[in-house]
Simulated scan of single mutants.
Amino acid sequence: MNYRVLLLGLCAWSSLSVLGQESRVEDIRIGGFVGGRIHTCIEQRVKSQDVEHLVEPFRHRGETSLWQSEFFGKWLLGAISSYEYCKDSALLEQIKTGVRSFMQTQTPEGYIGNYSPEARLTNWDIWGRKYSALALVAYYRLTGDKAALQTAMHSVDYLMKQLHEQHIDIARTGNYFGMASCSILEPVVYLYDITRERRYLDFAKSIVA
């Protein structure tokens, strides 16, 4: 059985009730089996997450090789998408509380991550910073909170400073021949789109060069 076709069919069937009506995309809710699974995922996975548990590694900065620093950003991106779908005020408050706690872990120079100073720019460090910046930009777009945008900018600015001062090619850092590190390109492009700051455009060009 082609499960992809089946899933698409279920989605289409669940959405029949809105056909012929004037609806905004953000107002559409999926019913039936698929809608039930979405609701269960939001309630029992997204909202049940202990967000402080995800933030905690950022307070210690002793990692040298692993990837815990991707977890908060991934959760936040999923939580924001879930909120945009369900408009649950309790979830929004959970998101806001988590972001406030997360932003407090940023060091004065701009680092948000869990790697020790001597291990930064290696393994999954930049990969984790990518998810943090992506999530903060998504939160800024959701709420307009300029503190989140400034935190993301400060983080990327610090990365740019590190690479420049240490004369390091980002494509030679991290895992998978630099692909993990170079994925920082996504939030860098978003920051340029939002701010029009030339330094982000230049950094983006240097990543793909």
Results as ranks from 00 to 15, higher is better:
residue 108 P to D: 02
residue 77 L to N: 12
residue 160 M to N: 10
residue 107 T to Y: 01
residue 111 Y to E: 04
residue 144 G to R: 05
residue 82 S to C: 11
residue 164 H to S: 13
residue 135 A to G: 03
residue 90 A to M: 10
residue 65 S to R: 13
residue 155 S to V: 02
residue 110 G to N: 03
residue 108 P to S: 05
residue 111 Y to D: 07
residue 99 V to E: 05
residue 58 F to H: 14
residue 151 T to Q: 01
residue 125 D to K: 12
residue 77 L to R: 11
residue 157 D to V: 01
residue 156 V to A: 03
residue 56 E to D: 13
residue 104 Q to R: 15
residue 86 C to P: 03
residue 100 R to C: 13
residue 96 K to S: 10
residue 157 D to C: 04
residue 162 Q to R: 14
residue 148 A to Y: 00
residue 119 A to S: 15
residue 112 I to W: 04
residue 118 E to S: 14
residue 148 A to D: 03
residue 73 G to I: 03
residue 137 V to F: 01
residue 63 E to R: 11
residue 105 T to L: 04
residue 63 E to P: 03
residue 113 G to F: 10
residue 77 L to M: 14
residue 87 K to M: 08
residue 123 N to K: 14
residue 87 K to L: 12
residue 83 Y to L: 05
residue 120 R to K: 13
residue 129 R to N: 06
residue 79 A to P: 06
residue 122 T to C: 07
residue 59 R to D: 05
residue 144 G to M: 06
residue 62 G to E: 12
residue 97 T to L: 11
residue 91 L to Y: 09
residue 128 G to M: 03
residue 69 S to W: 06
residue 59 R to S: 14
residue 128 G to N: 05
residue 88 D to S: 03
residue 116 S to M: 13
residue 115 Y to A: 02
residue 131 Y to D: 08
residue 111 Y to C: 06
residue 121 L to S: 00
residue 88 D to H: 02
residue 97 T to G: 01
residue 142 L to W: 01
residue 159 L to W: 06
residue 64 T to D: 08
residue 57 P to V: 14
residue 150 Q to R: 07
residue 73 G to D: 00
residue 152 A to H: 07
residue 128 G to Y: 01
residue 158 Y to T: 08
residue 63 E to C: 10
residue 95 I to L: 09
residue 73 G to W: 07
residue 85 Y to E: 11
residue 89 S to G: 08
residue 135 A to I: 01
residue 133 A to W: 01
residue 158 Y to W: 15
residue 100 R to W: 06
residue 117 P to S: 06
residue 91 L to M: 10
residue 77 L to W: 04
residue 74 K to E: 13
residue 115 Y to L: 10
residue 132 S to C: 14
residue 115 Y to F: 15
residue 114 N to A: 12
residue 123 N to D: 14
residue 68 Q to L: 14
residue 82 S to G: 10
residue 129 R to K: 10
residue 125 D to A: 09
residue 130 K to F: 00
residue 138 A to M: 02
residue 89 S to C: 11
residue 102 F to L: 05
residue 151 T to P: 08
residue 156 V to R: 09
residue 165 E to D: 14
residue 70 E to F: 05
residue 72 F to A: 03
residue 84 E to H: 03
residue 146 K to Q: 15
residue 78 G to A: 05
residue 55 V to Q: 05
residue 65 S to K: 12
residue 64 T to A: 08
residue 155 S to F: 07
residue 72 F to V: 02
residue 118 E to Q: 15
residue 92 L to Y: 15
residue 139 Y to F: 15
residue 126 I to G: 02
residue 160 M to F: 05
residue 163 L to N: 00
residue 144 G to L: 09
residue 55 V to C: 01
residue 70 E to A: 15
residue 137 V to C: 09
residue 110 G to C: 04
residue 60 H to T: 00
residue 62 G to Q: 12
residue 59 R to F: 09
residue 112 I to Y: 01
residue 127 W to M: 11
residue 91 L to V: 07
residue 150 Q to C: 03
residue 90 A to R: 10
residue 126 I to L: 11
residue 120 R to E: 10
residue 124 W to P: 05
residue 80 I to R: 07
residue 60 H to M: 10
residue 113 G to Q: 08
residue 97 T to M: 11
residue 90 A to I: 13
residue 137 V to N: 00
